[in-house]
Design a protein around this nucleic acid. Structure first.
Length: 508
RNA sequence: GGCCCGUUCGUCUAAGGGCUAGGACACCACCCUUUCACGGUGGUGAUACGGGUUCGAAUCCCGUACGGGCUACCA
């Protein structure tokens, strides 16, 4: 009874990894770790027509960036492989045929054109999308309507066929969802889903049940969009492996965009990412920006996803991955869909940038600055800069504006903000400030500030009138941390140079 | 159309029958700050509607409305 907890994330490698996908990974991961279980990633690539080069590797890159490493997968190995369904093709056919022998499935020879015609013929106002179900199947070409000889002959002649589940009539199919409680379906309304396609590959419905069984999955979590096909899967469990062996299910609510279902389009439309990392469609070359490249850090990204549909019942909102593992429980996952709020997402990221150790941020920021033509040679200076400005950076990209001027003398400065109150007296003051700074031997924020105040007093100027000009000379604009902290970090020579430059620009 | 899921401030949510419906984001005001942020204080703002059950309902039940998902040889 005390089986080891095993959960799986089963993505189809067809493109970018969506917000909702990462949250599904996260909840799987948290549940597994909370219960000392294993987290498995299984690649569901049974639709060969949807193969996209690089998509599988991309998914693993995203998981790695998020810090959600699987225990078993194509890349991580394990004793339940292969972990790619296309490599398990032979396994599924056996089970499909077992179902036929038991009378729970049948061969169907209808061509795509015939199916299309069926949908046209039976279409009505009351039933705009007819299904291949118990009311239709005896009007179609399948092993229920054909004689045994005909079936054997068709197969012998190599006629393409699929295997469909034969869904019973008038049964109530129900299960207990860990989030929603009891959910019921009327079997008469469930259609005869294809289990094995004409190319010999299973559909999701067969593969998920077979693999969850063979991989000893104990808890199966997926998005709410799968709820309507649950009765098919329950039937399959009953027919193949016994309902008592079925994993416990939970269907996560959907993540919605500002107007309904969140789509890739919403990203470009509303200016926020939808994918975890940059994704370039290999066919069209179209790039879709990811949270990573937008400037999110993994801690922030994970935190915002975790709280989109779950909370621990207290007012705590900022959680590390370790804290999430500790606090997570499936019954506190919401049943209603959640709208994604980019402002709140940024707030989470800001919280994590603020509280991150400099050493954690260093490498990403160094890369970023260097991409912006700012070679960093002095890492200890970079560390000081990061510590000084991190609280005013919401996204990693904010470090470009907040940190650049430490490493590069401003070329343009906001003289317009100085000029209106500029006069000869102030000019004289700054000349003397330069002379004094040149003679200063101990260079730190305290000393430079004192020097300024003393000289200001001599010139009968208020320090307040001088701070803004000095800031603009050093920084270029009206932003950044304390001016004297900046002076201390950029050093004596550079400070004097920038004041000198500033005076030149003001007298020009 | 049918089936399924859902519905508390604009958004994410707390409150598992008892009451000033709490917090966070965003927004506004003030304080702090010799810039910008951080931080602090306060404010605007919600139980979709209608019936029940109950001494008492955001909470339980029914209906309506609204939103979402599914309805492929895609996952």
């Amino acid at each position: 009874m005390n089986k080891k907890v095993r959960v799986r994330f089963a993505p189809s490698p067809t493109g970018g990894l969506h917000l909702g996908g990462v949250r599904t990974v996260l909840y799987n991961y948290l549940f597994a770790k909370k219960n000392n279980g294993d987290f498995i990633v299984r690649i569901e690539d049974t639709d060969q027509s949807r193969y996209v080069a690089g998509a599988e590797e991309y998914i693993f890159d995203c998981l790695k960036w998020c810090g959600l490493e699987p225990d078993e997968s194509v890349q991580h190995g394990g004793n339940f492989g292969p972990y790619r369904q296309s490599e398990r093709k032979d396994i599924y056919k056996k089970y499909a045929e077992e179902l036929i022998k038991k009378g729970f499935a049948y061969y169907a020879f209808d061509t795509p054109e015939e199916l299309e015609r069926m949908r046209e013929d039976f279409k009505s106002e009351n039933n705009p999308s007819p299904q291949y179900d118990n009311t239709i199947r005896d009007k179609m070409i399948n092993s229920l309507t054909l004689s045994e000889n005909e079936v054997a002959r068709f197969i012998g002649e190599g006629m393409p066929y699929v295997i469909r589940i034969k869904v019973p009539q008038n049964e109530t199919i129900s299960f207990t969802d860990m989030i929603r409680g009891e959910v019921q379906f009327d079997s008469s309304l469930v259609d005869d889903k294809v289990l094995l396609k004409a190319d010999g590959m299973p559909t999701y419905h067969l593969a998920v049940v077979v693999d969850d069984y063979l991989m000893e999955i104990t808890h199966a979590f997926r998005g709410e969009e799968w709820l309507p096909s649950a009765p098919v899967h329950i039937l399959l469990w009953k027919y193949l492996f016994g309902i008592e062996n079925m994993p416990q299910w939970a269907h996560f609510p959907l993540i919605l965009g500002p107007n309904g279902k969140l789509s890739k389009r919403d990203g470009s439309k509303y200016g926020f990412p939808v994918f975890a990392m940059n994704w370039t469609d290999p066919k069209t070359g179209e790039l879709t920006e990811g949270f990573k490249e937008k400037g999110f850090i993994p801690e922030g990204f994970i935190n915002l996803l975790a709280l989109l549909g779950w909370n621990d019942g207290t007012e705590k909102e900022v959680f590390s991955l370790e804290e999430l593992i500790e606090s997570f429980s499936m019954d506190r996952v919401h049943s209603g869909g959640a709208h994604f709020d980019y402002d709140k997402a940024k707030w989470f990221n800001h919280e994590w940038i603020k509280r991150s150790k400099v050493s954690k941020l260093r490498s990403a920021i160094k890369d970023l600055l260097e991409k912006n033509d700012l070679p960093i040679t002095d890492t200890s200076m970079l560390d000081k800069v990061i510590a000084l400005v991190q609280e005013r950076c919401t996204l990693l990209s904010d470090f470009v504006d907040q940190a650049s001027f430490f490493f590069k003398t401003p070329e343009e400065i906001d003289t317009a903000s100085i000029v209106p109150k500029w006069n000869d007296q102030k000019q004289q003051f700054f000349r003397e400030l330069i002379r004094t700074y040149k003679l200063t031997t101990i260079w730190n924020a305290h000393e430079t500030e004192n020097a300024l105040k003393e000289i200001a007093a001599v010139h009968q100027l208020k320090p307040g009138e001088l701070m803004l000009p000095l800031r603009i000379m050093l920084v270029g604009g009206k932003f950044g941390p304390g001016v004297f902290d900046i002076a201390e970090i950029i050093g004596k020579e550079e400070t004097i140079l920038r004041i000198t430059n500033g005076l030149k620009k003001l007298s020009a």
